[in-house]
């Protein structure tokens, strides 16, 4: 689809507005129709690991959004200069640099969060979504479009993380962003937090449930796989 867009623009010979319909589409696609987690089934690992609470999930999502959008932008800017034989290594170097920046900034400004996320920040490097988008999109598209695609993919990832984290935090700890939302009276009546929600497998069930809900609503997805 990407090539078609680029050719289409060339044929018209017109300068495309920054937020043309197609660009908005690039940004919106990964949120639903082409969601990296629920449709492409990438980046599941970190979605299981950091979704016990909303706060780390949000921070990690922001980290991934930053890395996907800027790595897409940088690679797209260099796409004609990158020697094809070393392109994967070049991509890795750029991604690793951006991830290290995220890690350093977190250590400097949000030490507690950085402690909680520990290895997962470093593991952004191996998040399949990032390399996937670089290979599939940034190498063949213009910088602005690539940037939007990265932004969208990161946001699509973040969306799932936050939905899963919201369920897990409410049912697992009775809180949202650390604030009590399940009233004390429920506990007095005998309600207890669900311990399963604190464990990684619950995220798998929730993502499964999300995919079910998404496919029952969006018929376009049903015959893809």
């Amino acid at each position: 689809m990407a090539e078609v867009i680029e050719q289409g623009v060339k044929m018209k010979g017109l300068k495309e507005p920054l937020f043309s319909k197609k660009n908005i589409q690039i940004l919106r696609d990964p949120l639903d129709d082409n969601n990296p987690i629920t449709v492409q089934v990438l980046g599941i690992c970190s979605a299981l690991a950091v979704t016990v609470q909303m706060k780390p999930a949000l921070i990690l999502s922001l980290g991934v959004i930053f890395v996907t959008s800027f790595s897409n932008l940088i690679i797209s800017l260099m796409r004609k200069a990158i020697p094809t034989r070393v392109r994967i290594i070049v991509q890795l170097v750029v991604v690793a640099m951006l991830v290290t920046i995220v890690d350093l900034v977190l250590k400097g400004y949000m030490f507690d969060v950085s402690k909680k996320l520990s290895v997962f920040v470093g593991l952004i490097i191996t998040n399949c979504i990032i390399m996937g988008r670089l290979e599939a999109f940034a190498l063949g598209n213009k910088p602005w479009k690539s940037f939007l695609d990265g932004l969208g993919s990161g946001a699509g990832y973040g969306l799932i993380l936050l939905v899963v984290a919201a369920f897990r935090e409410i049912f697992g700890s009775g809180t949202i962003f650390g604030m009590q939302v399940v009233p004390q009276i429920f506990y007095d009546w005998g309600y207890t937090n669900n311990g399963l929600m604190m464990l990684p497998p619950s995220a798998l069930f929730l993502i499964g449930g999300y995919i079910w809900w998404q496919r029952s609503r969006n018929t376009k997805l049903v015959d893809i796989s």
Binding site: A81, I82, P83, V86, I89, V90, V93, V94, A96, M97, T100, I101, L104
Partner: peptide, 14 residues
């Protein structure tokens, strides 16, 4: 040259 250049630039940024 490309690989060396890229490494040097990323190293400096970091």
């Amino acid at each position: 040259l490309f690989a060396i250049g890229l490494s040097v630039i990323t190293a400096m940024v970091l």
